[in-house]
Amino acid sequence: MTEVQKIEFSPEAMLEVSRIVSHYPQDKMKSALLPVLHIAQNEFGGWLSAETMDYVARLLHIHPIEVYEVATFYSMYNTKPVGKILIEVCQTGPCCLNGAEKIVSYIEKKLNIKVGETTKDNMFTLKTVECLGACGYAPMFQIGETFYEHLTEEKVDMILENLKQEKLKAINN
């Protein structure tokens, strides 16, 4: 992201945060950290900057380091910027028995990036992840909250193209 974004939750996100905080005893606000970081990541461009984490720390009345410790521990939090569409391909055993490695190299070739990289137009980031709990429906990847299963090269083409068009449409509007 190039333009400086003001770090503050939208009213809807704020409402969601207070709903989550209400799930825990009043003096245990820190428990809301993981779900609130998910919201923060969604709100502020798919990753957690130091400013975002500091903001979450203030919201939950904890030290910033407590947020950094957590954000760097869990693999779903991105502490570096990612593309608009983050592709997370499962690379664990059962998926590999059904061709996950081929899917990874197909996407690498198709998007002309390596695992861990982002396309020049900042549209796609490719990541490999460990078991996502879809072993019976392999190979698969996750984009956002959606699982795409029983992947084939044709299916990958279609999914990525559709998502790209959606994003472009959203930007143009």
Partner: peptide, 10 residues
């Protein structure tokens, strides 16, 4: 009283 360092990463 003010903790600023900790263990990062996994």
């Amino acid at each position: 009283d003010q903790r600023v360092h900790g263990v990062l990463g996994r």
